[in-house]
Design a protein around this nucleic acid. Sequence first.
DNA 1: CGTTGGCAATCGCGCATTGAGAGTGCTAAT
DNA 2: ATTAGCACTCTCAATGCGCGATTGCCAACG
Lengths: 372, 372
Amino acid sequence: MEKPHETDERVSQTDKAFEQAAEQPLDRRKTAILGTVVYEYIATGEPVGSATLTQKYNLGISPATVRAELASLDEEGYLDQPHTSAGRVPSDRGYRYYVDRLMLPETLTAQERERIRLEVNSASHQLDSIVDHASHVLSSLTRNIAFAIAPRLSTQVFRHIELIWLDDHAAHIVLVSNLGLAAQKTVNVQADLDAEALVHAANNFNQHLQGTALRDIDLEALQRLACQTPLPADLLRHIASILAEHSEAGIEGRLFSEGAHNLLDQQEFRDLRKLRAILDLLEEEQTLYQLLHRSLLAEGAKVSIGRELPTADMSECSVVTVPYKVGDSNAGAVGILGPRRMQYARLIALINCMADNLNALFHGDASSTPRE
Amino acid sequence: MEKPHETDERVSQTDKAFEQAAEQPLDRRKTAILGTVVYEYIATGEPVGSATLTQKYNLGISPATVRAELASLDEEGYLDQPHTSAGRVPSDRGYRYYVDRLMLPETLTAQERERIRLEVNSASHQLDSIVDHASHVLSSLTRNIAFAIAPRLSTQVFRHIELIWLDDHAAHIVLVSNLGLAAQKTVNVQADLDAEALVHAANNFNQHLQGTALRDIDLEALQRLACQTPLPADLLRHIASILAEHSEAGIEGRLFSEGAHNLLDQQEFRDLRKLRAILDLLEEEQTLYQLLHRSLLAEGAKVSIGRELPTADMSECSVVTVPYKVGDSNAGAVGILGPRRMQYARLIALINCMADNLNALFHGDASSTPRE
DNA sequence: CGTTGGCAATCGCGCATTGAGAGTGCTAAT
DNA sequence: ATTAGCACTCTCAATGCGCGATTGCCAACG
């Protein structure tokens, strides 16, 4: 079981410096009211008025007093009013205050934890599949969009390579790192491929590269090892590029996202143009990748709300991200994208659970039950 | 260049028998009017009235006469009227008549043909990637949903297998058929895996299964070959299941679909519930698979319109499918799903081009330029 | 002085009404 | 058989109205 404050600690506070006045804590009553408004709005999706607030929650004060406090919170920028005769809705700042200080950490059910564990471990040894499964299960559990990047290989170590002859101009390359299956690719080459030579070269690599960090293997290293074997130059280039694109921060084919159809259910996306904008963003991958990349720099789950996000198109969304480690350093990240009105506590619990599972998996300790 | 009637021949007429009266050709003038209405409606999306018809097209008759004919076509079931004071819209039967008899075959631009060719061949030797690319390029060119199944392996022949040791309880299996890379999978086993034994067993398989049809390799055959090697029973079962699930009509992991976001642009899906219904259908895969499977039974492109489709949810959609061959028999299929108001001629041309490319590819003649 | 009940004022939303426009079907004339 | 004319029907967008929800303010209260 998590202690009440653990989640707060694990939520990165790096953005706090940019928040103009969030460090000034609100007085006790304002705090209670703001928290209740955010909670109620997240639950119902309807703007919250003073009547609802006093009827559904036992605040011990009258609607009139609540109104005064609401007006004050509105003025200070924690709440918005869609229009004069409507209730209040949290602003970015209101959500931020709620996430940083008010919300109670949520605990997952055993089924949920188990489902995450199973899904992540079902694809063990296939890095791409793992993150694919990870985003799949997260999108299904949260009914939001989940996305993830496969781990960079920079910290991983060469264990095995296999070069499979397909025909005179094509070979299949399978690269295995210390963590399991790292990469695989079919490549076409100009020159004629000799099946024997492929086996021979693979043997050579396997003997001499054993234990080398993948980032240290470049084209020259490969050429040196293959100088006795009649291996086409472009095949070597392909192998080198597999290594490079996985240790560098290359995007292509490394980003997985899932669950776009979930947005259809969210009432905030009834407007098709907004929906379209988000889908285009997914297609482009650039923005999501940037978010995940940012998340690599710090520890723990990070929440980005509305205009804190890099794109104006996402100003009505929030994103929760968390990095995961391979060995001792962050190597990849997972994120959840949904409307600002999302269940932050639950999503943070889920994504932390996911990170724990991934961390355990990439420590070679795939079957252990992680914390909590 | 295609001759004017070629497309007609290539459109399978198998469903004709079920069409109650489509075989009765309409008279010349009705034909012209029906064709124009369908053409105009596909182009604009607006119900077509007698005025538009006489103004935009040179029919040589007055609006009043056109109205009489429209009323008659309406009565015979070729046209529908959204409401009394609107123009006419094609019914399923109207579209069917148009597709079977009226529409002019379309020719693709050189860019389009080249784009398909490049995309399909860019992933040569990786069966899954090929169909994935195929549906990707089709969805992008048509702005509809494209879907495809990877070829069954029943007609393919064993060429090579590789068993790669990952750790004591995991191995990566790569299966290569005469057509190139056929399947790959990472499996977990209970018993301890020995790296030497894996290499040995793979060698054994490679020697003795060379040239065997994949569908003829069952668990017993594998056991017989591996009896001298200490290979865990569940590893053999995994290998057998890879063979089985690809030669049988297994669904899982074999269906690729792409381009769901394109539906957002279609005005007929402004209603979110309809959109949702279609997305759920995609998720389930069952219906799409069934459509493709049906398509394997006949030759050439097949169009299914509205209620001709198996599900009521698709009654406002149409689907174009085409099988492709491996060797001499149909082994897979590609489809395009969109609103009934789709550019049938263009989609048929595109999908036929795709089938031609796939056919050429799976004849080992990957680089040749297929018939337009 | 903080809190509260009362109350007028404001605004969005749903609903009925209305008028314009588009298209039809009918009929009588050619 | 074809056509022009015309009354009719129906949708759609705009308009206006009343209801309900909520607020902000004020005066009274402890």
